[in-house]
Amino acid sequence: MSSSKKDNLYEIIFFVVFVFFMFYKLIVCFPLLGSFMIFKVVDYFLFLKYIQKNGIPHVGEIVSYENDRGYKTPVIAFETTEQHIEQTPQLHVSSDLDKFRSFKKNIGKTVSILYDPKSPEKFILINKGESSYFGLILVFLVGVVFIIVGLGVLLGYINTAK
């Protein structure tokens, strides 16, 4: 979401610690990964709340789709008073059906967006708000499971020895 230098530094530190524990004690990676997932969910949730409160409603046009492991993310083009923006939304949740659908008929259609007045390249599709929350809740729950399993093994509540 927010790609500030501070966030990038935290992500680099997390990556280094994660790689270290991959070789030292692998089970520590579970709570680390779960914590990272929850951190990103909270970050995106706060962004959604911010953009819904302060975002500027606007209309964009779908110009193409990017493929990400089979899922399709729309590339939206729109104009602000200062610049032309053409990129994917800040947060986009896809379903398994998106792998099989043909989206060519949507190219050229207009969509409603909300963009950040301070940073217009950060925007969301208005009609995808509910599915974004569903996706965030799902990732949050997976993160919690990773933390519980990892801590359960580390604290001896879950026995992995045969």
Score class of each variant (00 low, 15 high):
residue 93 V to Y: 01
residue 19 V to T: 11
residue 50 Y to V: 08
residue 113 I to C: 00
residue 49 K to I: 13
residue 1 M to K: 09
residue 101 R to L: 15
residue 101 R to D: 07
residue 160 T to A: 08
residue 104 K to E: 14
residue 35 S to Y: 08
residue 138 L to E: 05
residue 153 V to H: 06
residue 103 F to Q: 06
residue 21 F to I: 09
residue 133 Y to N: 06
residue 146 F to L: 10
residue 132 S to N: 13
residue 15 F to T: 11
residue 32 L to K: 04
residue 58 H to L: 02
residue 132 S to D: 09
residue 104 K to N: 13
residue 49 K to L: 11
residue 120 P to L: 07
residue 104 K to T: 12
residue 117 P to Q: 01
residue 127 N to E: 12
residue 14 F to I: 14
residue 4 S to K: 13
residue 130 E to D: 02
residue 82 E to D: 10
residue 4 S to P: 07
residue 3 S to C: 05
residue 123 F to Q: 08
residue 58 H to T: 08
residue 20 F to N: 09
residue 9 L to G: 00
residue 1 M to V: 12
residue 46 L to G: 03
residue 25 K to M: 05
residue 154 L to G: 09
residue 34 G to D: 05
residue 19 V to L: 13
residue 30 F to N: 01
residue 104 K to C: 08
residue 98 D to C: 02
residue 151 L to S: 15
residue 142 V to S: 05
residue 34 G to T: 06
residue 151 L to M: 15
residue 160 T to R: 14
residue 101 R to Y: 13
residue 12 I to S: 15
residue 42 V to I: 13
residue 30 F to A: 12
residue 116 D to A: 02
residue 157 Y to T: 06
residue 3 S to F: 10
residue 102 S to L: 13
residue 133 Y to H: 10
residue 144 V to D: 01
residue 11 E to L: 14
residue 12 I to Y: 12
residue 44 Y to W: 03
residue 134 F to P: 01
residue 28 V to R: 02
residue 2 S to R: 15
residue 85 I to E: 01
residue 124 I to E: 00
residue 2 S to F: 15
residue 7 D to Y: 15
residue 113 I to L: 00
residue 28 V to K: 03
residue 61 E to G: 09
residue 55 G to F: 00
residue 115 Y to C: 02
residue 73 T to K: 09
residue 149 V to W: 01
residue 134 F to G: 04
residue 107 I to N: 03
residue 17 V to Q: 00
residue 76 I to T: 04
residue 115 Y to Q: 06
residue 44 Y to S: 08
residue 47 F to M: 01
residue 161 A to W: 11
residue 134 F to L: 12
residue 2 S to K: 15
